[in-house]
């Protein structure tokens, strides 16, 4: 298992008052993503636990892209990964955001 942590500075102010949001299932080639509101002084923190070792750079690239798209602050994102491809990771992150932001609209 590998545990990675990423932090992004966001200006976003789209806090949604709701309990943890969870999407996806941990299985081979799949992952679960949990979003929680946490006071992180404007940061978005992403913790990844993955069974696939040695993919830090790819995670960095995928999450850079994700963070740029959503501009998030004070959000804790926790990921349990069973070796998903970058495309599946992107899909789940988008699903999680969609569900999270649902309460806004």
């Amino acid at each position: 298992m590998e545990h990675l942590e990423f932090e992004f500075k966001g200006s976003g102010n789209r806090q949604v008052d709701r309990q943890a949001t969870l999407v996806g299932v941990v299985s081979s080639g799949n992952l679960e993503v949990m979003l929680e509101n946490v006071d992180l002084h404007g940061l978005c923190r992403i913790n990844v636990s993955t069974s696939a070792q040695g993919f830090t750079e790819i995670w960095q690239a995928v999450l850079n892209d994700f963070a740029a798209r959503y501009d998030l602050a004070d959000l804790q994102i926790s990921i349990n990964d069973g070796g998903a491809t970058p495309a599946v990771v992107c899909l789940r992150l988008d699903q999680a955001m969609e569900e999270y932001l649902e309460a806004l609209t």
Binding site: M1, L22, V25, V26, E32, M34, S49, T50, S51, S78, N80, D81, G82
Partner: peptide
């Protein structure tokens, strides 16, 4: 974790 398996929340 000790067996290298991912957990679930």
């Amino acid at each position: 974790e000790p067996l290298g398996q991912p957990c679930s929340f």
